[in-house]
Write a protein that binds this DNA or RNA. Structure first.
Lengths: 239, 239
DNA sequence: CCTTTAATAGTCGCAGTGACTATTAAAGGG
DNA sequence: CCCTTTAATAGTCACTGCGACTATTAAAGG
């Protein structure tokens, strides 16, 4: 950071790229936009855009999140910096350094094209193919991070509406991890973790279907999960 | 990432900043350089420098690491991206976006001034005061990250020489966490984790002092720690 | 040789959790 | 109105991992 004058430095363009996740129809979906121009015209990409001269990357990311999802209030949504991608050739036109973010949405409002994107669409994660630039790798990194953070944080509630049942919360884990969790054990674990969820007093109900109505909960104040809620080991890792 | 031409974008300078840690005399030390010019002339700062037009940030970080430590081979050292700091006013001269890295060194070769730093010095973490720019925050973030990663990765061996005793490994945890760990329990945990360490067959010894010589171990192939080795809860977190 | 120092070995009890079984409370069809 | 279906909720049991602790072993140094 010393001696700026002693070095010639190339100017970089700095962008943010967003991996925006939501759960829809029991599947993990990610928000993609279709590129209108070269390079990669017609290909799908992560939403994103340039960081403006007077804003930090975090604000740029939240601004883009609002533009791309069409949501009027994105202030409460979970947004977290992932890492920065800086390979010199990641954009064929110029040197672009991109700060990647992951965002989690409770439900999926229909996407609308942002001002700088031809079309925006929620896409099931498993059917994503061949994204533009290095966005495939960014998306994979984001997905892995989300899966890992479910283990030791209360992040799962970020996928849920303000009030939710334990069954819905369990489905978040099952969907993201691609596993099935034991219902009573999950319940025990969640309720035994102080601050993870808090019961909504008016013993309300909600189930759309037939069975016994479930109690409603809100996200609690806790942010970390000690001890963690580990995903079942599909072999490989020691238990 | 679409429509570059539709937007005016300011060019940014992109730098890397490094929080380089080592253990010395039973204390966590960090490598600092003294700034030679304004702003913050005479203040201590994290080593770092500009990313060159043809290199990714990771290579810039490793290059700086070699320059600042004076080590001839930094290829094996642990270097990991922390996050990116992009507040518009973090550098009073211009818009500088900095990708921060954390590096871990086994022992502390005496620092030498890099080409662009007046002086470089290993400083005990606890006596660091008032760094230039936002480096105080970067350093704090890096320290927290290192402490947290000791829990669920095999990172601790990055602080050790190629061959080390379990006592030395335990001291890594004790120093970084500022706690005392039970010797037998630590031993049991480490040896029970496959791939964490592997015994050096020639039951060599090494202790400098008086007691029974300890067996030597090398870092194993494992990278993650399942289940994790949690730091003692000094109250606050649920157990 | 005897003391000191630290590594190594082993024991006990509790908390957390995986795997299960049982019960309760509703919806919906006959 | 009853009876089946569905899902939430309650509870049991055994095993594992770990904190706390005690005992033993193997060297160094006077």
């Amino acid at each position: 950071m010393d001696g700026y004058d002693k070095y010639a430095f190339e100017p970089f363009a700095v962008t943010v790229d967003l991996a925006v996740f939501t759960l829809r129809a029991g599947a993990l979906h990610v928000l993609l936009v279709e590129r209108g121009q070269e390079p990669y015209a017609g290909r799908w990409a992560l939403p994103g855009g340039f960081v403006r001269p007077d804003e930090p990357a975090e604000r740029a990311a939240r601004r883009e999140l609002g533009e791309e999802t069409g949501l009027t209030d994105v202030s409460g949504l979970h947004l977290e910096q992932l890492r920065t991608y800086s390979e010199p050739d990641r954009d064929p036109r110029m040197r672009v350094v991109s700060v990647a973010f992951a965002a989690l949405l409770p439900d999926a409002p229909e996407a609308r094209g942002g001002s700088d994107a031809a079309r925006a669409r929620w896409t099931p994660y498993d059917s994503v193919r061949e994204l533009a630039f290095d966005h495939g790798r960014i998306l994979a990194d984001a997905r892995e991070r989300v899966g890992a953070k479910l283990e030791y944080t209360c992040l799962a509630t970020a996928f849920c509406p303000p009030e939710f049942t334990l069954g819905e919360l369990r489905q978040v884990y099952e969907t993201v991890w691609g596993t099935v969790l034991d219902r009573p054990n999950f319940r025990r674990k969640v309720l035994a973790t102080p601050g993870f969820v808090e019961a909504v007093p008016g013993a309300a109900r909600l189930t759309g279907g037939r069975g016994k109505p479930a109690a409603l909960y809100r996200a609690g104040a806790a942010t970390a999960l000690h001890p963690p809620l580990l995903r079942p080991t599909p072999e490989g890792r020691p238990a």
